[in-house]
């Protein structure tokens, strides 16, 4: 919610320099970790495992510099549009954070609770985060999706998904 509206170029430019910084940091990380790769005992061929990482890391560092120059000279990455995207209002970080919580709770609960329930929690939570307030209807859809997809994968496609506490029921 703190991102400046479009048009305030100074703010936008500063934040895009962060992207250049990120690229540079990743590049440096790749370069340093490539230098730290110990000499291999089973290496084959004259080019070792660190050559390509050095080039890729170098590419990222160079790109980060050029991106920074581009941003300072007024170049801007244009945010992506889309059917449901309304640019101009700033970023709604609250929705994003709630979605991340729903997503992470699935990741944490999938093994103890099983996919039918954790997936349902993910769907319900994401729908809530995105503004749906039909709590009961959402819950029904979520459980149907969770249980239905579990049956589809386990029985229909032979791919195992954790069943968790519903073991013996499903």
């Amino acid at each position: 919610m703190t991102v400046a509206p479009r048009g305030s170029t100074a703010e936008q430019g500063r934040s895009e320099l962060g992207v250049a910084l990120f690229l540079g940091a990743v590049g440096l990380l790749v370069v340093i970790s490539a230098i730290l790769i110990p000499a291999s005992r089973i290496a084959r061929g004259p080019v070792g495992p660190s050559a390509v990482p050095l080039v890729v890391g170098g590419l990222l560092v160079v790109v980060s510099v050029f991106l920074a120059i581009d941003v300072l000279r007024g170049g801007r990455g244009e945010p992506e549009g889309g059917e449901d995207v309304e640019l101009g209002g700033g970023t709604d970080w609250r929705t994003v954070a709630l979605l991340a919580v729903a997503f992470l709770s699935n990741a944490l609960l999938i093994e103890p609770l099983g996919w039918p329930l954790s997936g349902a929690i993910l769907f319900w939570g994401a729908a809530f985060a995105l503004g749906s307030r039909h709590y009961v209807r959402d819950a029904v859809i979520a459980v149907v999706l969770g249980v239905g997809s579990w049956y589809l994968f386990v029985l229909g496609l032979n791919i195992s998904l954790p069943v968790g506490i519903l073991e013996g029921i499903l």
């Binding site: 993910l122 809530f128 994968f153």
Partner: peptide, 20 residues
């Protein structure tokens, strides 16, 4: 399709696919 369901569904199936 209501947008909350659409994007919740995308996250749901994305997680399912990645885990599977």
């Amino acid at each position: 399709i209501p947008r909350p369901y659409l994007y919740a569904g995308i996250l749901f199936f994305a997680s399912l696919g990645a885990y599977a």
